[in-house]
């Protein structure tokens, strides 16, 4: 069973992060800020000359929580596919780890936990930037940070587990293009789900990102609806737990032999 040794894996990841921090900074902070500028401000300025509202708030304020949750997803997805392949196959750092008291479950939990740390840091910084642009409306906004972390975990856990079952990276681009990108574009990130055709709308419940966006939006715009938020959290948590169980199993299988 995984133990506190997972913290040592986090430590290791943090150590190599010194070399690769730029990629993370881009995923969690720079990219959402760029989208904020282009879509939030640029396109937002076109919505009735910048004075139009979406769901009762300005377009900028509408997009900010969407981007916050979405970048948690994007960052987590990028970190849970190729870097995992590097650990299990290309550079085999994970094999080196399990040759020590660290077990396969620790490796899995450590890697996923480290993703959560980065999502938290990136999310906090993004929230500050968004607030400076006037995209944050409520004092409840800091709650968007744990929501973003939960979103990151809901992608990191199952994707890391999946990556642990693969021997090549052939399927990774397909996951990004047919999984992550559509979720990014259609989970209420840039426009309300209510604009989708009515038969499509219930499908958003299947999108982990939509739950994350709902939570973040509730927090930054102050429009939180407690019963629905509880449902959002429960669903995300369930994904994390199931993903973690799957991941510990696949990592044990992959690294034990």
């Amino acid at each position: 069973m995984p133990t506190l040794l997972a913290t040592r894996v986090v430590e290791h990841q943090a150590h190599i992060f010194r070399k690769f921090w730029r990629g993370s900074a881009v995923a969690y902070l720079i990219n959402p800020i760029l989208f904020l500028g282009a879509i939030g401000l640029g396109v937002g300025g076109l919505v009735k000359g910048g004075k139009g509202t979406v769901d009762g708030v300005s377009y900028l304020a509408f997009v900010v929580p969407g981007l916050m949750a979405a970048s948690a997803m994007n960052g987590a997805a990028a970190e849970s596919l190729w870097p995992i392949m590097a650990g299990t196959k290309w550079i085999r750092t994970f094999h080196a780890m399990v040759a020590t008291p660290v077990g396969p479950g620790d490796v899995f939990l450590g890697v996923v936990a480290w993703t959560a740390v980065r999502a938290a840091i990136g999310g906090t910084l993004f929230l500050i930037v968004a607030a400076l642009f006037g995209g944050v409306l409520s004092w409840w906004a800091p709650l968007a940070i744990p929501a973003a972390v939960l979103t990151a975990l809901a992608f990191a856990a199952p994707l890391t587990a999946f990556a642990g079952t693969q021997d090549t990276d052939f399927r990774f681009p397909v996951i990004m293009r047919l999984g992550v990108v559509p979720l990014f574009l259609f989970s209420g990130t840039f426009f309300p789900v209510s604009q989708l055709p009515s038969w499509l709308q219930p499908l958003c419940w299947l999108s982990p990102l939509w739950h994350g966006v709902q939570l973040c939006r509730g927090a930054t715009t102050g429009s939180i609806d407690p019963p629905e938020a509880v449902a959002n959290v429960a669903i995300l948590m369930a994904i994390v737990v199931l993903g973690a169980r799957w991941g510990i199993r696949t990592f044990t299988k992959k690294l034990a032999t």
């Binding site: 879509i39 979406v54 990108v181 840039f190 426009f191 604009q195």
Partner: peptide, 13 residues
């Protein structure tokens, strides 16, 4: 997908 999301979805706004 971008066309559908930004062009049509955001376009409606």
């Amino acid at each position: 997908l971008y066309l559908a999301s930004i062009g049509i979805g955001v376009g409606a706004l």
